[in-house]
Design a protein around this nucleic acid. Structure first.
Lengths: 347, 347
DNA sequence: CCTCCGTTATGAAACGATTCAGACGACTTG
DNA sequence: CAAGTCGTCTGAATCGTTTCATAACGGAGG
């Protein structure tokens, strides 16, 4: 129904080749002809058919971005970073939400493959899907976002999560906490495991006690998951109950905070909380959240840069970039009493 | 580079037509042939080229979703609702962020037109872009989201924002507030104007005083905008300073809350706040936010349903759906002292 | 044995753009 | 004046798929 290049050519009284030239290499066509063609285009409301272009060109002008949870502001910030790079390059982004479910992820990757996207940016679920490899074998670049590359033959932009976990834990340990909870997730994401590892190492070094760390793994890394974990913590006998928690992301931390408040547990006096990601809402929380800050937008834009470079071909070298997180201390971890004394008294 | 249907045909020793049949109408090809073809497909890692399909079919398998602010959880919730409908239909969503800027919106609409999307879901900027009409003239369905249709010849899914504004204002008026601020935005979005109208009507009815409502319009409907507005309110002389605010969305409300707390203004004792949208973070705020709740995901999924129906053609009737908002009362508006007395004392 | 029919497979024509070898004048140049 | 050059335009081939008219084959019915 919509006008094609042939209709334009007919109306302007030129060949289709000439119309194409007006569109793509205007300098090779005479001014007079160019104007006639442009007039015809305007009159017919002609819009290029991207699929036809793509078919001929062999590559599309889109990239795919697959995230774990579109409702998590961390990922929308990443998406923004991606957009900042991809938009000026004239590419469109197909944003897919895997919901941390491998089947959804695979389905989305299949669609992206059919769309012949120029490349895929993805924060994958725990297991690296075979679909990812098959994309790469097919020559479609894949850049991992917020996840380390398992092999050096691909690009990845990650954060040193062991360090992040350590920063969070050391902060709590310094403030005297001796029984700490790590609230992760059931899906086994390596980012979460690394954060856990960092926390565990710091706790072990400081306490020499492997039981000092309680690990909870709610189903999902969401506010609801955090509430669930907090309820379990509150249910523990006082002697074994942790006095602080490091959460694998801010959504969890927010959930923990909500449930603690609801149960009448004071934060940070009775229970300290450290989140992860430092999303904007962390600072606005009921009790402003101490959190491990990651360069969210930079993660996205750097990943996009690497992807575009790889898609361009010509001597691309794979880069595994690792950003350093920092700790942002806010009220949720500002305990006032000395917990070391507390604990020693209890023993 | 990637295997084409022709390669598959060759390897399986059949014609391309047969391969296509295996893919699209497997029942018409004999089991033996089908297996051979399927084997070849697996061996070559063949993946359909969606652009070629689309070119032949005349329509793509994607839709566009254009939102005002991807960082606003309201829109990610809408996107989720859209996904719930669009995904099972086997379509992909191209998510675009206009940042409330008409030029970005237009640019995105152009890209979507070139992609020949099946339809566009959009929360448009204040002025309805001519690009929207030109899409519709070209036969691409457009459904407005969270925005009323200007004419009955198109679908729209909106919320009764006059009512929403009224609910918010009446709640504050009942609690004794007599000087109220409406914090909107500078970009003139009709949703915001309607909320304003609802608030203004309620305030006028209750106070008979047109000056009882102070209108502030920060640049953007964001947390930063809210902080900016709050700072201006605090700067006002006490006699003219409002005692409460209705904010055009929750991001603004969160910003107002932050700045008030920072300036030592107690919420809700000294200043009450009502937000709009009821995003999840509203309940988790420093002071849990009273907010006007909209059916966020339903807005998206209903809009997507209408879009798919319209794209299907065949006797589609345009629907303008208007959801009713409800007020969710939380702490941010729970004032304790009687402000009527307060005000009367002041006069 | 012939005809007819149903099942299955074929091959060519589209879809809309880009590209490229070549045509055609008009001009230079030796 | 012939040959070469330049600027401009043409037309056909091509990308990968779907579709559709048609062919090939085998079996049933007369």
């Amino acid at each position: 129904m919509p006008a094609s290049i042939r209709d334009v050519a007919e109306r302007a009284g030129v060949s289709v080749g000439t119309v194409s030239n007006v569109l793509n290499r205007p300098e090779v066509v005479s001014e007079h002809t160019r104007e006639r063609v442009l007039d015809a285009i305007a009159a017919l409301g002609f819009v290029r058919n991207e699929s036809a272009r793509h078919l001929r060109a062999g590559h599309s002008r889109t990239i795919g971005l697959v995230v774990l949870d579109i409702a998590n502001p961390f990922f929308t910030d990443v998406a923004r970073g991606v957009d900042d790079v991809v938009d000026p390059a004239g590419l469109a982004v197909i944003l897919c939400n895997s919901d941390d479910r491998p089947e959804k992820e695979s389905a989305h990757l299949d669609v992206l493959a059919e769309q012949r996207v120029q490349g895929v940016l993805i924060t994958p679920t725990a297991e690296l899907s075979p679909h990812l490899d098959s994309l790469r074998r097919r020559g479609i670049p894949v850049v991992l976002v917020d996840r380390r590359a398992p092999t050096p033959d691909q690009c990845a932009v990650a954060v040193d999560d062991v360090l992040g976990g350590r920063l969070a834990a050391e902060h709590l340990l310094e403030r005297g906490h001796r029984r700490i909870a790590f609230i992760g997730g059931a899906s086994g994401l390596p980012q979460v495991q690394e954060r856990h590892a960092g926390v565990a190492a710091a706790v072990r070094e400081a306490t020499g006690d492997d039981d000092a760390l309680l690990v909870l793994s709610p189903e999902h890394l969401t506010v609801a998951g955090g509430r669930e974990a907090a309820a379990r913590i509150v249910g523990l006998p006082a002697a074994r109950r942790p006095t602080a928690a490091v959460c694998a992301n801010d959504l969890l931390a927010l959930g923990v905070l909500q449930e603690m408040v609801r149960q009448g547990v004071r934060v940070p006096e009775d229970f300290a909380i450290v989140g992860y990601d430092d999303i904007d809402f962390a600072a606005a929380a009921a009790v402003p959240l101490t959190s491990v800050r990651k360069p969210r937008a930079a993660l996205g834009s750097r990943a996009a840069e690497l992807l575009l470079d790889e898609a361009r071909g010509e001597g691309h070298v794979h880069v595994q970039e690792v950003f350093e997180p920092t700790l942002v201390v806010r009220e949720s971890s500002m305990a006032f009493r000395d917990r070391t004394a507390d604990r020693e008294g209890a023993q």
